[in-house]
Design a protein around this nucleic acid. Structure first.
Lengths: 199, 199
DNA sequence: ATATTATTGTAACGCTTGTTATGCGAATAG
DNA sequence: CTATTCGCATAACAAGCGTTACAATAATAT
């Protein structure tokens, strides 16, 4: 049963959603052609029309992950350390959506570490994220909200902290509910902000 | 060609080493019976004698990982914040051995997150590690080397930081050589230590 | 020296995976 | 209204997986 042209666009979104669901449910290693087809209520024949290869499917899945990560609604940036806080909060698995996203990212690390090309691609991605954080750190320093020091260093610090917290929260969601994640982030920000001025 | 009784012990070590090598090289998802057999220069028939199941092999692999992680040579603990520093340094991929170990841990997260039992087991493991860190934090606080505050909180902070740094270092070993990892850890410890006393 | 046991290789099985060829039916063009 | 094209299902294939049964060889006991 073929579909109209308008439905075709909708079908592409269905495929994306199926890929997403499969990854979120069965992990990155569970991303198989038949699993996507089943999730879609279709067969592998459909997928061959959308992806020539398994490799193409994987690439598409990673692009989808990247795109959904980048283009999800973000907190208003604000200025100085407020912008840094917003960026870090946006990385944490505080909602269902960001939990799925982070869950998929972590589960993709296995294959990413096995594939040299993917490894460098991931390294590049995290380096870019670090640069963005560095700029916000530098801005906060200029506002006097963070003590002087190598912003690169501070950026690497907060990124490592958030990344590790993501992993912890994924394994122990009850021990790290949103409130606790935020509490820990606030504590960390306070720590790098140094001695708080006497009020 | 059967072997003598003394060789059998050696054979067990060979099997362990083969399992380890396969995991370190092809990741946790690449841990297959034939891969281990090939690494061993043998066939699957040998492995059926050591492991009744694939599940048994996986369990054994995880035990091996746990055991090699726990029983590897550790830095002298020292007292106070020195003990905390030593514990954190022991977690970082500073050597070939610890890099392999961490590499395997990270690659096992995919399957661990897909299996509820493994997820709770991992959560428990990290909680235990956090408790050990908490005790060292508390000890450092009593010595006045760390400012007062919830040691549980500080432990979660440093654990997240180290965990994230491990991931970063695995993806970008050139950007995070041992010296830089140590530098970042020192910076982090200095940050949570608060304003350094005037010397 | 022969028999028994332990250890390993060989080979096949059913299953799942990615891949490919083929056929059918609906949408669209003439 | 007919024909062509497009979208998808069906089905088969080889390869890799875990699993199993069985044969062969070496070590040990009798």
């Amino acid at each position: 049963m073929a579909r109209t042209k308008g439905d075709h666009e909708a079908r592409r979104r269905d495929v994306s959603e199926a890929v997403w669901q499969v990854m979120a449910t069965r992990g990155f290693s569970g991303l198989t052609l038949r699993a996507v087809a089943d999730q879609l209520g279709a067969t592998t024949g459909l997928l061959t029309h959308y992806f020539p290869n398994k490799r193409a499917l994987v690439t598409y899945a990673l692009d989808l992950l990247e795109e959904r990560t980048v283009s999800r609604p973000r907190r208003p940036a604000g200025a100085g350390i407020e912008a840094l806080r917003a960026a870090l909060l946006d990385m944490l698995p505080l909602t269902e959506e960001t939990t799925s996203s982070n869950r998929i990212w972590v589960s993709s690390w296995d294959q990413a570490l096995s594939d040299p090309d993917l490894t460098t691609a991931y390294a590049h991605k995290y380096a870019q994220s670090r640069e963005a954080l560095r700029d916000r750190v530098a801005a906060a320093q200029e506002l006097g909200e963070l003590p002087a020091g190598d912003p690169e260093q501070v950026a690497a610090d907060v990124q490592s902290f958030v990344l590790g917290l993501v992993v912890q929260a994924l394994f122990a969601p009850t021990a790290f509910p949103p409130a606790r994640q935020i509490e820990l982030l606030e504590g960390h920000l306070a720590a790098i902000a140094g001695p708080r001025p006497v009020t």
